[in-house]
């Protein structure tokens, strides 16, 4: 008998109770969407990729190793799905200079918070896709280095070094963006 709540749901799913899958989707949708969004940098596309990943995971549940962590397995599918979406739609790539960053006024009325998010997004866009994904997983604060490595298909040591350097680069980019903003004021 397992104590892992995810495993209990998976067993119910495999027994044919497909309705319980919504519990897993609700639980992991934010992180799944975040990972897809950081890779694709396009909300509708990220939403579609994340949905696709959940559907793929559902249909491959029989092959899921119950000894493993469901979230790590799922996020690996999300990562791979987002990467394949990116490959398919590479021709639609928008350069950073032409990217219009929208203010999400509905999400929060606090202009300072919106600004911070905007600058952070701009700084993240200056990093490579691999750095962005590794940093996202790192700051989601749920994964060990080994899990980040498993999701992204890197060696744990490579992931460690990549995250370390990416944090420094992100701070540098953020500093540059903020200095440029200060000059335009």
């Amino acid at each position: 008998m397992t104590n892992d709540p995810d495993q209990v749901i998976i067993e119910q799913l495999l027994a044919g109770d497909r309705g319980v899958y919504s519990v897993l989707v609700n639980k992991y949708k934010s992180y799944a969407f975040t990972i897809a969004q950081k890779i694709l940098q396009n909300k509708p596309e990220a939403e579609e990729a994340a949905q696709d990943a959940f559907i793929k995971a559902y249909h491959h549940l029989a092959g899921f190793n119950s000894e493993a962590k469901f979230s790590t397995w799922l996020y690996r599918i999300v990562f791979n799905t987002a990467i394949s979406y990116r490959r398919k739609n590479r021709y639609q790539f928008q350069s950073i200079e032409n990217t219009v960053i929208k203010y999400d006024q509905d999400a929060d009325g606090n202009l300072e918070k919106v600004d911070k998010k905007k600058y952070l997004n701009q700084a993240m866009l200056k990093l490579s896709e691999a750095d962005r994904t590794a940093l996202t997983l790192f700051y989601l604060d749920e994964f060990s280095l080994e899990e980040i490595a498993e999701i992204t298909g890197m060696q744990a040591n490579t992931a460690k070094v990549r995250i370390h350097r990416a944090r420094q680069r992100l701070a540098d980019e953020l500093k540059t963006i903020l200095s440029e903003e200060a000059l335009t004021l």
């Binding site: 919504s22 989707v25 949708k29 969407f33 918070k113 952070l120 700051y139």
Partner: peptide
Amino acid sequence: SMKKNIVEEPSKNFTQLVM
């Protein structure tokens, strides 16, 4: 900033669409 702003929320009907 990263810790505060990292998580992004999908649309409200996300789960419904998946199902």
